[in-house]
Design a binder for these strands. Structure first.
Lengths: 377, 377
DNA sequence: GACATTGGTGAATCTTCAG
DNA sequence: ACTGAAGATTCACCAATGT
């Protein structure tokens, strides 16, 4: 990935190299309309939240809370915010690949409007995810619950988009081998990660933690994918994308943010391919036919298989099928047949005996795969 | 609270006793329009989620998931669901007191539409709250994150409604003396709490845990308040309300649910007054003027007050003000003045010396209040 | 150097009563 | 409805300073 570039104008016929890993300066709708359609794999959007603050807020020690009162977060009405939301969602949708997915983060001020609009435009919500903050700001006046989370919506482009990327096994492995849930726990962005000006002020009022973006990309993208962030800000999406071996493209209007993002991303050292390599789980594992276990000598023809409770017994045949009485078929079909079900995962249903204990034949498949990896592919 | 009654028809002029602690049979919009306006303190609504399941869902062992496919959860389109949502929200809003609040629970299928509609109708969102499930249903296909939470929206009737009930101190005390956050952890409703038919099927597909409702009511209502549930189902709201000394009124169409709820609520034993008492803080204490401390002889005119670090000293005057040099004013104003702040709580800022130690004058206020209680008022 | 103290701060729709 | 004053209210983390 080359040093980050800034693109001021992009012709509609620009080729991929001209906009990949760049920041498009200006309004995101105008900028996105110059990208080719169906060209990005994942969108991460952190739009203005439309906070409606009246007056100042002080902490109990009388210090003033530095509120988000930037011009870019001012809208005249819900209708104006809805129109804004609709416009950028449509622009994003055009450049999203048919099997691409979109993430949007927000708070109760805006997320319900954004979510409803996404549904109206045809996006298909896959999950809503809650970012639980370990260290949220307290409620200083004691009149509400401490606002301790933000919400992310994860959606595919259409209801029909079934081929989206979800690295299920990587997520599961990262979560102590149980399924990754929809509630994620991360600290807010502080300390050395938080970009500061020379005078010590925060560069951006709402910089997101890199860990959050890393979870998003590890879950829903592959190395080499293109991640679009239409509200690039100080470039958290770009920094994490570069580190994780993804491409990015961002849109941003404010010069200060662009400058900060450019320097930040230039300093990022990408991880090596081995480090990035998705912990690919079974879904991406090479397919192993039951017959190859027989071929490999791990199961001899005539060997007996049973279910875990030894209610049924089948014998292995040399052709890679198994037989019960006069009937034979695949491990899956015969497993389903004896149970009276429509389908069955034969790999986990059928067991073999070794050293007096029953083990699923899936263990043998793992051995075959290990041998394949040792052989380099 | 008398035994639960079922009300089939209610005249618009019915008095309170006729509908309090009853289930109104029929569509909630029609039923609610017969209640007097501004008559309920809190609404808890668990509307149909508009789940969009295509075909059956099976677990990995091929057992069929008993999905929510009831007729009441079927809507032809988002537009139909929005119209339904708008209708019941408007009906509910009419009967809600000006300082009442509303809770709505939902999932990503419906909560964004409901939340946006609430904002459109003028409700003012106070918090969104996440119910994190300790034991959610797994994602059987491994194509999404495990859906491990549901979302609640808590809103006041209007932006101007500042007098809503929030038992801040009770919530804080219940949360190990730190503010209650917006992420709540509860198990889903199972075991003995889950209502089952004689044949062992669950009576209602989405019965909510009583602990969730108890948290809602303890946070946002007071004993004796009226809690309305327009989608009463099997009466979790009624059962918890009765147990916690609140009144309820529910709307329900399905006879099976009404029967189950009626029996369930009749069996509930209300807790005693001492058990439902709310932890309260200073806000609930009677006001005591600083001058009354002087009147009561707890501080003599001319007594000296200092801040905790003895940086400033003030003298008490007979009129209940304090003086520093030639300037005098209330304990609050003078505390703010010396610190150069806009505001200050003089009760905790100023101290007096007793037996060689500094104590806040708030301690003296406590003594006055204790005397008031002893005197019976 | 280790530990204690102090100060700063983060996407915030953040009071209530009397007159 | 508006004004002015009373007075109630914070958690986790980091950085800098003090002992």
């Amino acid at each position: 990935m080359s040093a980050i570039r800034l693109v001021d104008d992009l012709s509609p016929s620009a080729n991929r190299a001209e906009w990949l890993d760049t920041i498009l300066r200006g309004d995101c709708v105008a900028a996105l309309n110059r990208l080719p359609e169906k060209s990005v794999d994942v969108v991460f959007a952190d739009p203005p939240y439309n906070l409606q603050l009246e007056g100042d807020l002080h902490r109990p020690d009388q210090s003033k809370v530095d509120a988000v009162d930037d011009a870019w977060d001012q809208f005249d009405s819900f209708a104006a915010y809805d129109a804004f939301t609709r416009a950028w969602l449509l622009a994003v949708r055009r450049v999203l690949k048919p099997n691409g997915t979109i993430w949007v983060i927000g708070s109760y001020h805006n997320i319900f409007r954004v979510g409803a609009m996404m549904q109206d435009l045809g996006f298909w919500i896959l999950n809503d995810v809650v970012w639980r903050k370990t260290n949220p700001m307290p409620n200083f006046r004691g009149r509400r619950f401490q606002n301790a989370h933000e919400t992310l919506i994860w959606a595919s482009r259409d209801q029909a988009s079934k081929g989206y990327t979800f690295n299920y096994d990587a997520m599961k492995a990262a979560n102590d081998d149980v399924q990754m849930r929809t509630d994620w726990l991360f600290p807010i962005c502080t300390g050395g990660e938080r970009l500061k000006t020379a005078s010590g002020d925060k560069v951006h009022p709402t910089q997101k933690p890199e860990a959050l973006l890393a979870r998003v990309m590890m879950a829903s993208s592959r190395p080499g994918d293109v991640i679009l962030d239409p509200f690039f800000g100080t470039g958290t999406t770009g920094a994490v994308a570069k580190r994780l071996g993804r491409h990015f493209v961002g849109c941003e209007r404010e010069k200060d943010y662009i400058d900060a993002a450019t320097a930040r991303i230039a300093a990022v050292e990408p991880l090596g391919a081995a480090e990035i390599a998705l912990m690919t789980g079974k879904r991406a594992e090479p397919r192993v036919a039951f017959g190859s276990l027989v071929d490999a000598g791990l199961l001899a023809p005539g060997a007996l298989l049973t279910d875990a409770r030894k209610r049924w017994t089948a014998s292995v045949r040399a052709d890679g099928t198994i037989a019960i009485g006069s009937e034979a078929g695949s491990i899956h079909r015969m497993g389903a047949r004896v149970q009276g079900l429509d389908a069955c995962n034969g790999w986990t249903f059928w067991h073999f005996e070794e050293a007096g204990t029953l083990k699923p034949i899936d263990d043998l498949r793992s051995q075959v795969r290990q041998g394949m990896r040792a052989a380099g592919g």
